[in-house]
């Protein structure tokens, strides 16, 4: 990073994936479809590539951005994720770009205050709704998952009626379904 840059607590990698509709997710084709886009370690580096990135709302259906700490693959099976889980927030169309930005700024700025628990965040563009999620290492720790939920509510400024769901990755592996 350049001298004078504002270093982030962690180095992050952005990944992109797109699934052909109707093609059921399996770990092998998921791994083939996911592409590394960029890695950054400072606030300046983040903004310099983010400015050129297509906004989530402008992506075609079945696309995902995955922003994870460097060294953590955005897969359930990764060592950092395998006993973890995620908070899932379903959004009506049109909100994903703004809320995704709020979420990742909170993550990069270490606003969640849960030590090293956060693994990454995902925005999923789908046909009828969009979904954002934040992944953490320990699905069984209620104190941590509650704190993540409360910060998520605050930074997204969600309407009270928004339904949030926590799902352990072991359950996603069992039913082979992410949401």
């Amino acid at each position: 990073i350049n001298p004078g840059d504002h270093k982030l607590q962690f180095v992050y990698t952005l990944w992109f994936s797109r699934r052909s509709p109707g093609n059921k997710a399996s770990s092998s084709n998921y791994e083939d479809n996911i592409k590394m886009v960029a890695t950054f370690a400072s606030v300046e580096q983040f903004w310099s590539f983010y400015s050129f990135l297509t906004r989530p709302c402008d992506l075609t259906s079945s696309s995902d951005y995955h922003l994870f700490k460097q060294g953590i693959k955005p897969m359930w099976e990764d060592d950092a994720n395998k006993t973890g889980g995620k908070w899932i927030v379903r959004l009506r169309k049109g909100l994903a770009s703004r809320l995704w930005e709020n979420l990742i700024l909170a993550m990069l700025g270490e606003q969640f205050m849960v030590g090293d628990e956060i693994c990454g965040a995902v925005v999923s563009i789908r046909f009828a709704e969009d979904i954002i999620s934040i992944w953490n290492r320990t699905a069984s720790d209620r104190t941590i998952t509650s704190r993540i939920r409360d910060t998520l509510k605050r930074v997204l400024n969600l309407p009270l009626s928004t339904i949030m769901e926590y799902k352990a990755h072991t359950d996603s592996i069992k039913d082979q379904s992410s949401f």
Binding site: Q9, V43, E44, W47, L105, G109, E110
Partner: peptide, 21 residues
């Protein structure tokens, strides 16, 4: 150790910094 914490407002200001262009 200490953690590097950034508030949203600060990060938004940094968006327009010449170093981030």
């Amino acid at each position: 150790g200490t953690r590097i914490i950034y508030e949203r407002n600060f990060l938004m200001q940094m968006r327009n910094s010449p170093l981030a262009q």
